[in-house]
Every structure is written in structure tokens, then in C-alpha cells.
Design a protein around this nucleic acid. Structure first.
Length: 489
RNA sequence: UCCCCUGUAGCGCAGUUGGUAGAGCAGCGGACUGUUAAUCCGCGUGUCCCAGGUUCGAGCCCUGGCGGGGGAGCCA
């Protein structure tokens, strides 16, 4: 064989080889999720996953519960004593062991599950020494589980959180794609030093240790980008560029805030969805936000029934009813000014007194969402002094076209606005807030050339998942939470 | 960053007026043998977060630090 034919065969044969039966590809892999459903009865194949518990039973055989992440429920496997490795291995299986099980799905003889697998062969891939394996066959606190973030996906709760989070992510894309939005990948690194809201993480390749020893001033012109660079706190300004060119867009990506926030609602790194739409006014924006949230809630209820039942049972007895109600009711919409009047007339004793022009405190938001309206509230037309420069000014000279969607317990889940599209007004607002127009030249260009009314908002993914699941702490709805002083794993 | 709470066995906790720690669950050993976090009997777990201080003596009291939680602010 000459080299040319070798190359030819190397090119052709792999396609063929993939079609050849091999030990791996002949196996009919059945997910635990499917194996638990009645239609699977009679099918033969393999289930692969991790042992949750083993019970040795009458008649000299064992029940093994296996989970593979495809569903909350485990598959019960019957391991008979006549299996070759029954005494040597199967009777030693404990929580955490990884296995491949060959067998046939049949109707379960026991009470609690419709199906079970009769094993004809069990291969143990990895053991989990019960003296050393941290996860016990009992409930652990969420705090302790955070210390074991590499193992907590193996628990019922985190499996459920993970599946719901996935469902929400899928719904986000489905919703916007079905509505004709373009998915825009806005940059993670921002070299403009002027994103406005929120403390930012600095990105640098400068040798900080050397710099500290040298005692000399930082020369940012020598840094990677030739100027200071940061991690993004929002894709909005970039999103506006594409909305003002292509109409309807959304971003969905990681967002970074270097605030020293230590609460159950804040993360230093989180995921945010930001739609931005040309020719949308604030009411269109509110309509979009409401439709969007309802879609996320509806999909979670319809597609994650088993997982939602777990949250409803163990974490928040009201979460399913709350979501169902929200999906069926119109969101309450309320101008800031009216909200202030309601709060003042409420007779509640607030720690912070309410006055027109102040930022609403958590206690005020909670009163509105939890007591007064018992559901989501969209507040809009906030005092201009409270809000950033890019929000559209109302003719009253006092308010801007901002909107916040507030929900019970979690608080602000969406923040957005109609953007100021008038060049002169925008420039005046920037001057008011001591921002340099030259730093925003490209942003101002959008108003110079073919400006359009446009609007958008940001939804915190984790806050949405938090609200849907009823999980109290945001650190328990993200795989690896980043918070001040904590970046483990 | 501020206020409050908290840190004892693998895990969740108790520990009296200051006298060097103990029950449960998990684990291990055994019994039982269509079970559902199986059940029953037996066995032990230790840098009492760290560093100082007070005291004859500190898990306990004091000071400082670190970790965790709740609330506030900032926000999504």
C-alpha cells in the first residue's frame, strides 16, 4: 500500500467502522426516565448510572435503586443471587457506586413504582467507600451541600434544580426564537470604562505582584487591550446596537458584578437574559416581559412536573399554586407615584418611611407583591434621579420610562426601560450625571443616524429559577456559586 | 460594607453555676430475607473553628481572627 491509498482508506474506513457493531453501540441504552414508564415494559437493554441505595431482600436477592440524572425518580433493579458477582460485588453496592446494568424492564411486583428492571448482568465501574463518601443516605442541609458542590448534583434536590434550570434556559431560547428574535453574543470583556451600573471586575494581564513591588503607577497602555478592561455587567448597550439595526434581539450570557453583596439574592457571576427591541415603547416592553415570564413558568410546570412536586413538597408548599395563578392572571401595573401613595396610605409601619423620590426598599416591595397585590407587580415611571442616563425621560420632567417587575419573596426579577432615543435629551442626561460624551460616541451615533424608539430589559436567570423552584438561597440554583470571598470549585 | 445569630463525632445536634464530652442518624459487625430512607441486636467515632487572655482548671467567660446563616444596602 502506498501512502496515497493509506490516506484514502483512512478517509473512507472510519465512516464504515462507525456503522459496525461494537460492544458499545449494540447496547440499547435506556434512560432511567424512560425505564420508569409503563411503555418500557418488555424492552431489554442497559441502564447506566449511580446507585442511590441497596436493600437486601427476602428470597436472597437485592433491590438496587439507580439514578442517571434523567429524572428525579430512581429505577428499581432486581439483582438475583444467581448473578455471577452477587456475593462478591452486588451485595457490597452502596450509595455513590457507578454501575452498568443489563436486563429487561418489567412491571414491578412492589407497590410504589410501575416498572423495575430484572438484571441479567451488573458491572461495577467505581466504588464509593461509605466511610469516606460524604453523601449519606439521609437529608443534608443546603449549607453543607454547598461545601460539596462537586457532589451535590447527585442529590434529589440538585438534580431537580438542574433539570428546572435547563428547562428555563430552553424556554428562554424557544420563546425568543419563536417570536423572531435574533440571539446576539455580546462581549464578556468590555474595554470601555463606562458601563455605568455596578462595580466591575478588572481584567488584566499585567503582573500584579511585580507591580506591587515596583511602587510605580499602573501603565494601562501596556496592558493587553492597551486600556483598562473589565468583565461585563450588562450586554444592554451592545444589544442596543443590534436592536437598532436588526429589530428584535436578545442576549443570554454570564454577567459579572463586583459588588460586595452578601444576600440570598445576589451572585458575583450570574446569567442574564436581555431582550432589546426597536420600535417598542414601554408598554410593549411590559407586555413582552409578562408574556415571557408566563412562558417560563408554564413550561416549568408542564415539563418538570416531578421536580416541581419535590420543591412544592420540601421547599415551598405554595410554589406550584403560585405559578399556576400567575400564569392565569394579568400582572398588576403601577406607576411609581401611585405605588408611593398606596404605601403611604397602607398604615404599615415601615422601617424606612416612604416619600416620593426615594428608592423603594425591600420592605416596600414585599408589601406590594406579598400583601397588597399577592402576585407580580410591574412598577414604572420612576423618578429620573434614581435611574441611569439611558432611560427615556417623560414629559413631566420628573420621571423616566423605567420598569421593574417585582415578584413575591425574590423581589426584582426584571429591570428594564424604554431607552432615550433623542440625541439632545440623552446628551443632557449624560452631562447631568457627569458622563463624558466621547466615551459613548458609538452609543450616541445610534441616535445620530436613524434613531428609533426602543426598549429592553434584563432577567436574572437565577432569580427566575429561584422563584420557580421556591429555593430560598440563590446559591442553590447555580452549579458553582461565586460570591464575595468564595470561588471554590 | 453594616446589624444580628452561629461554629462540638462523617451528618444534624445536646452539653447544667467553669471540673478535659454524649445520645440520634450514617458507618461497621451480626440477624432477618418482595424491599421502598427496610427492620431488629451489638460496636465506636473527637485539633470542641483558629490565636491569644482570665483561671488551680475553659467546649463554656473575655479579646481578636476565620468560616457559615439571616437581615439591610447595591442590583438581576
Amino acid at each position: 500500500m502506498n501512502p496515497a491509498s493509506l490516506r484514502l482508506s483512512a478517509f473512507h474506513f472510519p465512516l464504515f467502522i462507525f456503522l459496525l457493531p461494537s460492544e458499545g453501540s449494540t447496547m440499547n441504552r435506556i434512560s432511567v426516565k424512560d425505564a420508569r414508564l409503563a411503555p418500557a415494559i418488555g424492552s431489554t437493554g442497559v441502564v447506566q448510572g449511580w446507585v442511590r441505595t441497596r436493600r437486601d431482600s427476602k428470597g436472597g436477592f437485592s433491590f438496587i435503586e439507580v439514578n442517571d440524572g434523567s429524572s428525579l425518580g430512581n429505577l428499581q433493579v432486581i439483582a438475583d443471587a444467581n448473578l455471577a458477582n452477587y456475593e462478591s460485588e452486588i451485595k457490597k453496592l452502596v450509595a455513590g457506586c457507578s454501575v452498568t446494568i443489563e436486563g429487561t424492564i418489567k412491571a414491578s411486583g412492589g407497590g410504589k413504582q410501575p416498572t423495575e428492571m430484572g438484571a441479567t448482568k451488573i458491572v461495577v465501574h467505581g466504588w464509593a467507600d461509605p466511610e469516606a463518601y460524604p453523601l449519606q443516605k439521609k437529608q443534608h442541609t443546603l449549607e453543607k451541600l454547598r461545601e460539596w458542590a462537586h457532589l451535590r448534583p447527585r442529590t434529589n434536590t440538585f438534580g431537580a434544580v438542574t433539570r428546572v434550570r435547563n428547562c428555563v434556559s430552553r424556554s428562554i431560547h424557544n420563546f425568543y426564537q419563536e417570536e423572531g428574535f435574533l440571539y446576539i453574543h455580546t462581549p464578556i470583556i468590555t474595554a470601555s470604562d463606562c458601563e455605568g451600573a455596578g462595580a466591575m471586575f478588572r481584567v488584566t494581564t499585567l503582573d500584579l505582584d511585580k507591580l506591587a513591588l515596583s511602587g510605580s503607577k499602573v501603565r494601562t497602555e501596556l496592558d493587553f487591550f492597551g486600556k483598562p478592561a473589565y468583565l461585563t455587567v450588562s450586554g444592554q448597550l451592545n444589544g442596543e446596537i443590534f436592536a437598532c439595526s436588526l429589530g428584535k434581539i436578545y442576549t443570554f450570557g454570564p454577567t459579572f458584578r463586583a459588588e460586595n453583596s452578601n444576600t440570598s439574592r445576589h451572585l458575583a457571576e450570574f446569567w442574564m437574559v436581555e431582550p432589546e427591541v426597536a420600535f417598542y415603547e414601554l408598554t410593549d416592553n411590559m407586555d413582552l416581559a409578562e408574556r415571557f415570564l408566563k412562558r417560563l413558568f408554564k413550561d416549568a410546570l408542564n415539563q418538570c412536573g416531578e421536580d416541581m412536586a419535590l420543591f412544592n413538597e420540601h421547599y415551598d408548599k405554595t410554589t406550584i399554586a403560585t405559578l399556576e395563578k400567575i400564569v392565569a392572571t394579568e400582572f398588576r401595573r403601577l406607576p411609581y407615584t401611585e405605588a408611593v401613595e398606596i404605601l403611604k396610605a397602607s398604615g404599615e409601619k415601615f422601617e424606612f418611611p416612604v416619600e416620593w423620590g426615594i428608592d423603594l426598599q425591600s420592605e416596600h416591595e414585599r408589601y406590594l407583591t406579598e400583601k397588597k397585590f399577592d402576585g407580580p407587580v410591574i412598577l414604572y415611571d420612576y423618578p429620573r434621579t434614581l435611574k441611569p442616563f439611558y432611560m427615556k425621560c417623560n414629559d413631566d420632567g420628573k420621571t423616566v420610562r423605567a420598569m421593574d417587575v417585582l415578584v413575591p419573596k425574590v423581589g426584582e426579577i426584571i429591570g428594564g426601560s424604554q431607552r432615550e432615543e433623542r440625541l439632545d435629551v440623552l446628551e443632557a442626561r449624560m452631562a447631568e450625571q457627569h458622563l463624558r460624551a466621547e466615551d459613548y460616541w458609538w452609543y450616541l451615533d445610534l441616535r445620530r443616524f436613524g434613531t428609533v424608539p426602543h426598549s429592553g430589559f434584563g432577567l436574572g436567570l437565577e432569580r427566575a429559577v429561584q422563584f420557580i423552584t421556591g429555593m430560598a438561597n440563590i446559591r442553590d440554583v447555580i452549579p458553582f456559586p461565586r460570591t464575595p470571598g468564595s470561588a471554590e470549585f
